[in-house]
Computed example of a mutant assay.
Amino acid sequence: MSTNTSGTFPLPQDLENDRIKLVPYIPSFHSEVFAELSKKYPETYKYIPWGHSEVQAAFDSETFLREHKWLLFAILDKTRPPSDHLVGSDGALAGTIAFIDCDPRNLSAELGAVLIFPPFQRTHVASNAVGLMLQYALNRPSEGGLGLRRVVWLANRLNEGSIRLAKRFRFQQEGVLRWHMYLEGGPAGNGKLLREEDPKPGCPGRDTALFSLCWDDWEGGGAKENSATVMLRIN
């Protein structure tokens, strides 16, 4: 089975603890189940600028992942059995998570594509996935990490769950990007109302809350200790 080599940071074979495992997202292996879950739970995409068909196309495109410098992982919940189409995997497909816009020159990346399907929301999945990714990003190389200086988190300003999760890991809010994106269809309650004659009717606007977690926050502000509860193992 080939691995995702689309990004510009070293990609571990997997990151895991006793409850979840993050493995490189492999379209030929994960996409069928991911597509089924996306169609079954369209509310997963409520606050993001893409619909599930666009996300599926992006995740299936090595060209997209490479050009946008993504390191994309599938999240496996080890506490639940794998789906029929994922026989041999270490758990049920719970969602995805990624390093986006990897920038090795400035030692930074965005933590994004955090898509958790409803049966796995409000469980251990999201916090463990984020904790594992942050440890890999911000721990020193001697600790098995990349030693990055900065990790960015962007959230729809109305997405209270995403903002709450960022704050739990001590991300610091730097500001709000007003009318930053448009949302592909969906009710206006997911974003901002439009004026008459807007060129994108039916696509609400999105204010984006901008957060960051930097190495000095990580080592000096308690974030590393919070994340340590997820017990990282890098293979």
Score class of each variant (00 low, 15 high):
D18Q: 10
P42H: 03
P12K: 03
N4Q: 14
K78N: 07
Y25H: 00
I75G: 01
F73T: 09
D18W: 02
Q13M: 12
R66A: 14
E16V: 10
S31G: 07
K69I: 11
Y25N: 02
D77W: 01
P27C: 08
W70Q: 04
V33K: 06
T44P: 00
K39H: 15
K69Y: 08
V55H: 07
L65R: 11
G7F: 07
V33S: 11
Q13L: 14
N17P: 01
G7S: 05
K21I: 04
Y47K: 00
W70N: 01
D18H: 04
F9Y: 13
K39V: 11
K78V: 08
G7N: 09
I48Q: 00
A35I: 15
F29C: 09
P49Q: 04
E62K: 15
K40Y: 03
F34S: 01
F29M: 11
Y25Q: 01
L76F: 07
I20R: 02
R19T: 12
Y47L: 03
N17I: 01
E32T: 09
E67W: 15
A58Y: 07
L22N: 00
F9S: 02
P10S: 06
Q56V: 12
S28A: 11
I26R: 14
P27N: 08
N17V: 05
P10R: 01
P24G: 13
E32C: 09
H52R: 04
D18K: 05
F9W: 10
F34I: 02
L15Y: 03
F73S: 06
R66S: 13
V33M: 10
S28M: 10
Q56A: 13
P24K: 04
G7I: 05
K78W: 07
E43S: 03
Y47S: 00
Y47H: 01
S53T: 08
Y47T: 00
S31K: 12
K21T: 06
A58H: 13
F34P: 01
P42D: 03
D18G: 11
V23K: 00
V33N: 02
T63M: 15
Q56N: 13
L72M: 05
F9I: 08
S61T: 08
N17Q: 08
L65C: 07
P27D: 07
Y41Q: 06
A74F: 09
F73C: 09
I26G: 09
T3A: 12
S6E: 00
P42Q: 02
Q56Y: 07
E16F: 08
P24S: 09
L65N: 08
F29G: 08
Q13N: 14
F59I: 09
T8S: 15
T3F: 13
D14I: 06
I20G: 03
K39N: 15
T5S: 10
W70Y: 14
T8E: 14
K78G: 05
E16Y: 08
D60M: 11
D77S: 09
S28H: 15
L76C: 04
L65D: 06
V33H: 01
F29I: 13
